[in-house]
Simulated assay, not measured.
Amino acid sequence: MIGTQTQPKELGQIEVAPEVLGVIAGIAASDVDGVVEMHGTFYNALAEKFGRVNYTKGVKIDMINDAIVVDVYITVAYGKALPLVAEKVQENVQSTIFTMTNLDIREVNVHVIDVQIAKHDIGH
Protein backbone atom coordinates (compact mmCIF):
# COMPACT_ATOMS: atom_id res chain seq x y z
CA MET A 1 0.00 0.00 0.00
CA ILE A 2 1.04 3.54 -0.63
CA GLY A 3 0.61 5.50 2.56
CA THR A 4 0.31 9.10 3.51
CA GLN A 5 -0.46 10.64 6.83
CA THR A 6 -3.16 13.27 6.43
CA GLN A 7 -4.61 13.09 9.96
CA PRO A 8 -2.93 13.96 13.25
CA LYS A 9 -0.54 11.21 14.38
CA GLU A 10 -2.76 9.98 17.19
CA LEU A 11 -5.54 9.08 14.75
CA GLY A 12 -3.41 6.75 12.68
CA GLN A 13 -2.33 6.56 9.06
CA ILE A 14 -4.36 6.65 5.87
CA GLU A 15 -3.20 4.36 3.09
CA VAL A 16 -4.15 4.73 -0.55
CA ALA A 17 -4.03 1.61 -2.73
CA PRO A 18 -2.10 1.86 -6.01
CA GLU A 19 -5.30 0.88 -7.84
CA VAL A 20 -6.95 4.06 -6.52
CA LEU A 21 -4.08 6.13 -7.91
CA GLY A 22 -4.50 4.29 -11.21
CA VAL A 23 -8.20 5.20 -11.37
CA ILE A 24 -7.47 8.85 -10.58
CA ALA A 25 -4.65 8.99 -13.15
CA GLY A 26 -6.74 7.29 -15.84
CA ILE A 27 -9.66 9.67 -15.44
CA ALA A 28 -7.37 12.72 -15.22
CA ALA A 29 -5.52 11.73 -18.40
CA SER A 30 -8.75 11.00 -20.27
CA ASP A 31 -10.07 14.46 -19.39
CA VAL A 32 -7.31 16.21 -21.36
CA ASP A 33 -8.35 17.65 -24.72
CA GLY A 34 -6.72 15.62 -27.49
CA VAL A 35 -6.61 12.31 -25.60
CA VAL A 36 -8.84 9.95 -27.55
CA GLU A 37 -8.38 6.81 -25.46
CA MET A 38 -6.20 5.03 -22.98
CA HIS A 39 -4.33 1.87 -24.01
CA GLY A 40 -4.56 -1.18 -21.83
CA THR A 41 -3.41 -4.75 -21.82
CA PHE A 42 -5.02 -7.84 -23.32
CA TYR A 43 -6.69 -8.41 -19.95
CA ASN A 44 -8.24 -4.92 -20.09
CA ALA A 45 -9.66 -5.61 -23.56
CA LEU A 46 -11.07 -8.96 -22.43
CA ALA A 47 -12.70 -7.43 -19.35
CA GLU A 48 -14.30 -4.71 -21.49
CA LYS A 49 -15.85 -7.34 -23.75
CA PHE A 50 -17.72 -8.59 -20.69
CA GLY A 51 -18.98 -5.12 -19.90
CA ARG A 52 -16.55 -4.18 -17.13
CA VAL A 53 -15.35 -0.60 -17.15
CA ASN A 54 -11.70 -0.44 -16.19
CA TYR A 55 -10.67 3.06 -15.16
CA THR A 56 -7.06 1.97 -14.67
CA LYS A 57 -6.74 1.04 -18.35
CA GLY A 58 -3.56 2.51 -19.80
CA VAL A 59 -2.07 3.39 -16.41
CA LYS A 60 0.86 1.81 -14.58
CA ILE A 61 1.79 2.83 -11.03
CA ASP A 62 5.24 2.00 -9.62
CA MET A 63 6.95 2.69 -6.32
CA ILE A 64 10.65 3.33 -6.91
CA ASN A 65 12.69 4.14 -3.80
CA ASP A 66 9.60 5.45 -1.97
CA ALA A 67 8.67 7.64 -4.94
CA ILE A 68 5.52 7.24 -6.99
CA VAL A 69 6.00 6.97 -10.75
CA VAL A 70 3.00 6.99 -13.07
CA ASP A 71 3.08 5.80 -16.68
CA VAL A 72 0.11 6.52 -18.95
CA TYR A 73 -0.42 5.07 -22.43
CA ILE A 74 -2.63 7.16 -24.71
CA THR A 75 -3.98 7.69 -28.22
CA VAL A 76 -3.98 11.31 -29.35
CA ALA A 77 -6.30 12.87 -31.92
CA TYR A 78 -4.72 13.64 -35.28
CA GLY A 79 -3.86 17.32 -35.64
CA LYS A 80 -3.16 17.88 -31.95
CA ALA A 81 0.35 18.89 -30.88
CA LEU A 82 1.70 15.75 -29.22
CA PRO A 83 4.11 17.55 -26.83
CA LEU A 84 1.35 19.91 -25.65
CA VAL A 85 -1.16 17.11 -25.08
CA ALA A 86 1.48 15.05 -23.24
CA GLU A 87 2.43 18.01 -21.05
CA LYS A 88 -1.24 18.67 -20.19
CA VAL A 89 -1.65 14.98 -19.29
CA GLN A 90 1.39 15.18 -17.00
CA GLU A 91 0.09 18.31 -15.30
CA ASN A 92 -3.49 17.05 -14.93
CA VAL A 93 -2.49 13.63 -13.59
CA GLN A 94 -0.02 15.07 -11.10
CA SER A 95 -2.28 17.86 -9.82
CA THR A 96 -5.40 15.65 -9.63
CA ILE A 97 -3.61 12.93 -7.65
CA PHE A 98 -2.13 15.55 -5.30
CA THR A 99 -5.49 17.30 -4.82
CA MET A 100 -7.30 14.05 -4.05
CA THR A 101 -4.64 12.23 -2.00
CA ASN A 102 -2.03 14.79 -0.89
CA LEU A 103 0.60 12.48 -2.41
CA ASP A 104 3.49 13.87 -4.45
CA ILE A 105 4.17 12.13 -7.73
CA ARG A 106 7.82 12.08 -8.77
CA GLU A 107 7.18 11.38 -12.48
CA VAL A 108 4.31 11.15 -14.90
CA ASN A 109 5.60 9.47 -18.06
CA VAL A 110 3.33 9.79 -21.09
CA HIS A 111 3.57 7.19 -23.85
CA VAL A 112 1.77 8.17 -27.05
CA ILE A 113 0.91 4.79 -28.53
CA ASP A 114 -1.24 5.87 -31.46
CA VAL A 115 -2.76 8.80 -33.33
CA GLN A 116 -6.41 8.55 -34.26
CA ILE A 117 -7.43 9.95 -37.60
CA ALA A 118 -11.06 11.01 -37.93
CA LYS A 119 -12.80 10.15 -41.20
CA HIS A 120 -13.17 13.82 -42.11
CA ASP A 121 -9.35 14.23 -41.78
CA ILE A 122 -8.77 11.74 -44.59
CA GLY A 123 -8.68 13.46 -47.97
CA HIS A 124 -11.53 11.63 -49.77
Results as ranks from 00 to 15, higher is better:
residue 60 K to Q: 14
residue 55 Y to D: 06
residue 91 E to G: 08
residue 45 A to Y: 12
residue 18 P to T: 03
residue 83 P to R: 13
residue 28 A to M: 03
residue 14 I to D: 02
residue 68 I to N: 01
residue 54 N to C: 10
residue 50 F to H: 09
residue 29 A to R: 09
residue 97 I to P: 09
residue 120 H to L: 12
residue 74 I to P: 07
residue 118 A to C: 03
residue 28 A to H: 02
residue 75 T to E: 09
residue 35 V to H: 06
residue 19 E to L: 00
residue 100 M to P: 12
residue 122 I to Y: 08
residue 12 G to N: 02
residue 112 V to A: 09
residue 107 E to K: 13
residue 17 A to P: 13
residue 66 D to P: 01
residue 51 G to L: 02
residue 56 T to N: 12
residue 65 N to I: 03
residue 94 Q to K: 14
residue 119 K to P: 10
residue 72 V to R: 04
residue 14 I to M: 08
residue 13 Q to K: 11
residue 47 A to L: 14
residue 35 V to F: 06
residue 111 H to E: 04
residue 91 E to L: 13
residue 25 A to T: 02
residue 23 V to M: 09
residue 5 Q to W: 01
residue 104 D to L: 05
residue 44 N to I: 00
residue 52 R to W: 07
residue 15 E to R: 10
residue 112 V to S: 08
residue 72 V to H: 02
residue 23 V to N: 05
residue 43 Y to L: 13
residue 82 L to D: 06
residue 87 E to C: 04
residue 40 G to I: 00
residue 78 Y to G: 07
residue 26 G to M: 02
residue 3 G to P: 00
residue 111 H to G: 03
residue 113 I to G: 10
residue 18 P to M: 05
residue 50 F to C: 04
residue 49 K to L: 08
residue 86 A to L: 06
residue 55 Y to G: 05
residue 49 K to Y: 01
residue 44 N to W: 06
residue 47 A to T: 11
residue 123 G to Y: 11
residue 76 V to Q: 06
residue 119 K to R: 14
residue 118 A to K: 15
residue 19 E to F: 02
residue 6 T to Y: 09
residue 54 N to D: 14
residue 122 I to M: 09
residue 103 L to C: 01
residue 46 L to S: 10
residue 117 I to W: 08
residue 92 N to H: 12
residue 21 L to N: 08
residue 53 V to M: 03
residue 53 V to H: 03
residue 29 A to L: 05
residue 120 H to Q: 15
residue 2 I to S: 00
residue 11 L to Y: 14
residue 97 I to S: 02
residue 20 V to G: 06
residue 21 L to Y: 10
